[in-house]
């Protein structure tokens, strides 16, 4: 796993300080149909390459972050606060 995570608030910090939730998916609207919810709760892509994930800086600033991590190399291409302006892209 990624050894150092570039937290936008704390700088590069060791991975032990973080908790990983998994795929950073957009939560469906309340009234979305069942299949959309089923996708959100259960179905995961397993890409070979870049993947957006929620990481929590549990032992740091306690912010939830969205990391773009390469599942092959673990290289972190981007990391932003989950609350920051640019919203999650729709799943394609």
């Amino acid at each position: 796993m990624a050894s150092l995570v570039p937290c936008p608030n704390c700088g590069r910090r060791p991975k032990e300080e973080f908790t990983i939730k998994g795929a950073a998916l957009k939560r469906p609207a309340a009234g979305a149909d069942a299949s959309e919810w089923f996708d959100y709760v259960y179905l995961r892509d397993n890409p070979h390459g870049a993947y957006e994930e929620y990481w929590h800086h549990t032992s740091g600033c306690r912010r939830w972050l969205v990391l773009t991590r390469d599942t092959v190399t673990h290289e972190v291409a981007a990391c932003r606060d989950a609350a920051d302006g640019s919203r999650l892209e729709e799943r394609t």
């Binding site: 908790t19 939730k21 950073a24 939560r27 929620y54 929590h56 549990t58 306690r62 912010r63 939830w64 969205v66 606060d81 989950a82 609350a83």
Partner: peptide, 13 residues
């Protein structure tokens, strides 16, 4: 606590 932070920061900032 982690879950609530997720809700507050990631779902409903």
């Amino acid at each position: 606590m982690n879950h609530l932070e997720f809700c507050a920061q990631a779902l409903w900032p």
